[in-house]
């Protein structure tokens, strides 16, 4: 009945309106499955979690049977030393990996900004660590850190040095975990900053060189400021991802020894799976979300502010030159 070939339509006004109506519905039909899945699989669960964070709820109960306790989960967590420790560990971990990876990645990009033969092959090699399952990355590093069969302690031993308790001492464990993350994600920063560097306007660099700027001056006053927008977004992406790390640490240390590597994500997992306190776990999740949100927004605004300031400085310099 519906939708004959287009050239027959003008002869039949009724068919035309029917067809037009069908066309008007099409966008809704196209979007409907996505909206449905997102509502059922994402929005509802997140709303549900907000509700659950006000409940005293154990996994054996249906949510309707759980007792409403108001803000008790939130207040309780504020005074909970283990939770505070996990927040501290998370912040230290995120700050350390983002700053180390940014310095190393950008530094390497500045150093290696040449005409590279086989750059695409190199990029492929560098993204391998990011593509492999975090579980496997954790496995590899746990093996390398192994006190007796691990490659690090074997090497130290063959040099006649004391072995290091990489994962078994609370002083070393967090550093070891950070090293693994740096290995996995520095290439990300490197690839992005190299791309940014190679797309800089040649004229600015040429002008600086003609004016006699040294290598360092070029880096500090031209390259880095021009790369800034990309660098800020890169750091932002890394920061967000640093809060999502879970499996690598789970496999390497499972949060130990003690609480030395127990990031908030791991704490949530243990609260839910081991301590069976779903309400507390939900409240922790909300806290974690808030921390990520605040940091992301803060960093985003800082980036905008820096960009705006640089633009003003440049505009003023141009004005001064014109005058």
């Amino acid at each position: 009945m519906r939708g004959g070939p287009a050239h027959t339509l003008p002869k039949d006004p009724l068919m035309a309106t029917a067809r037009r109506r069908a066309n008007r519905l099409t966008p809704y039909l196209f979007v409907a499955p996505a909206l449905l899945v997102l509502a059922v699989g994402l929005l509802y669960p997140i709303g549900y979690m907000v509700w659950a964070s006000f409940l005293d709820w154990s996994p054996s109960q249906r949510i309707g049977e759980a007792e409403f306790v108001g803000m008790r989960n939130y207040v309780g967590l504020l005074g909970d030393a283990s939770f505070q420790e996990s927040v501290r560990v998370t912040l230290v971990f995120a700050a350390a990996v983002v700053s180390i990876e940014m310095v190393l990645g950008v530094g390497l990009a500045l150093l290696l900004d040449r005409q590279i033969r086989g750059m695409s092959l190199l990029r492929t090699v560098f993204i391998l660590p990011m593509m492999i399952a975090p579980i496997v990355v954790g496995l590899i590093w746990r093996y390398m850190y192994h006190p007796s069969v691990g490659v690090f302690n074997r090497t130290l031993e063959s040099w006649g040095l004391e072995p290091i308790p990489w994962l078994s001492s609370p002083d070393w464990a967090l550093a070891s975990v950070i090293i693994a993350d740096v290995w996995q994600w520095t290439p990300f920063v490197f690839i992005l900053s190299l791309a940014a560097l190679q797309s800089l306007p040649r004229s600015a660099l040429e002008a600086a060189r003609v004016d006699g700027a040294s290598e360092w001056q070029q880096v500090w006053h031209i390259k880095l400021p021009l790369m800034l927008p990309v660098l800020i977004v890169t750091a932002l992406l890394r920061l967000i991802d640093a809060f999502k790390v879970l499996e690598v640490i789970l496999v390497m240390t499972n949060g130990g020894p003690g609480l030395s590597t127990e990031i908030v994500s791991l704490r949530i997992q243990r609260t839910v799976a081991e301590f069976r306190q779903l309400g507390t776990g939900a409240a922790m999740s909300i806290y974690l979300l808030l921390i990520v949100l605040v940091l992301t927004v803060a960093m985003f605004l800082f980036g905008k502010w820096r960009e705006g300031r640089d633009a003003r400085v440049r505009a003023r310099a141009a004005e001064a030159e014109a005058a």
Binding site: L42, M49, V272
Partner: peptide, 20 residues
């Protein structure tokens, strides 16, 4: 926003809803 959500955050609701 979705990229910001750590998977661990979905643990509680997904357990609760998917099971019950």
């Amino acid at each position: 926003l979705m990229r910001m959500v750590p998977p661990a955050v979905l643990l509680v609701p997904i357990f609760g809803i998917w099971t019950f």
